[in-house]
Write a protein that binds this DNA or RNA. Structure first.
Lengths: 135, 135
DNA sequence: TTAATATCAGACTAAATCAGTCCTTTATGT
DNA sequence: ACATAAAGGACTGATTTAGTCTGATATTAA
């Protein structure tokens, strides 16, 4: 269906929230969750994913929270989405080491190469759009 | 996850099969199913969808089957995909008449407009790729 | 040093979607 | 009539996604 997951949506929203808050300290998961009506646990997970991918930094404890690790004009949407989506591919066989194990049509498939080109173009769209452009 | 459905894959494969067969008569669902190892019932449904969208024509009975309604250089991939996918949108609120009923963040959502632009670019990729280019 | 706050992390459940199957009907050519 | 093949609807099972629950760890402030 070519739909983004909720995790990807929440990641974009959370990144935008932090970018708008600028350098004025940390944003907590609770704060973002309540501002955007996103389930707390979910947005918390997403924020942790952003930290793991070095898009955000975190601080534990009182007055802690999350903030962006870099400026919004150095973060592309594909960075954010890949932080929460392991398999951002239009078909499974686009994966790096895919084989006939991933697709029963692997050998007789006639649309692999054209789809790879489309995949490349879609990646390009998300790569070229920077966080600063969605503020 | 931004993945194409199997139906979309099968539709592209079936369209390609018919295009390659050129004007030399009909292709049956059974024939395509066996050539590409696609479940018969599924590819049959997909072919029916292509007929409904005027991408293919069909003939019942002995010697019947399916063939393309137009030349491969006049059919874009988005035509084929939309024939089998009702909701080809990266987020639900991209739907024509969407409202807060479709998204609990409809009013507080801060990423709708940028995503609409991305949607437009993705549509463009599929619109500009013609069936003839995947043969 | 205790209480409150907030991230970190993994297991788990529920809901939704997708893929595939089954069955019946309708139409066509031999 | 009979074989073939599309049309179409209902249904099931599998997979994926969304969301929840529970507990641990780290930090600050009183």
């Amino acid at each position: 269906m070519l739909k983004l997951s909720k995790k990807a949506e929440y990641a974009l929203m959370a990144a935008k929230y932090m970018a708008l808050k600028n350098s004025s300290g940390f944003s907590t998961a609770k704060e973002i969750s309540e501002s955007y009506q996103i389930p707390y646990q979910l947005v918390a997970k997403v924020l942790q994913n952003l930290v793991k991918s070095d898009i955000a930094v975190s601080a534990k404890g009182v007055n802690g929270g999350f903030s962006l690790a870099r400026k919004a004009n150095t973060i592309s949407l594909i960075d954010i989405i890949r932080a929460v989506e392991t398999n951002f591919k239009i078909v499974d066989c686009m994966q790096a080491n895919s084989s006939s194990a991933d697709c029963e049509h692997f050998d007789c498939c006639k649309i692999k190469d054209p789809l790879a080109e489309i995949q490349r173009k879609i990646d390009k769209v998300f790569t070229e759009t920077l966080l600063v452009q969605i503020l």
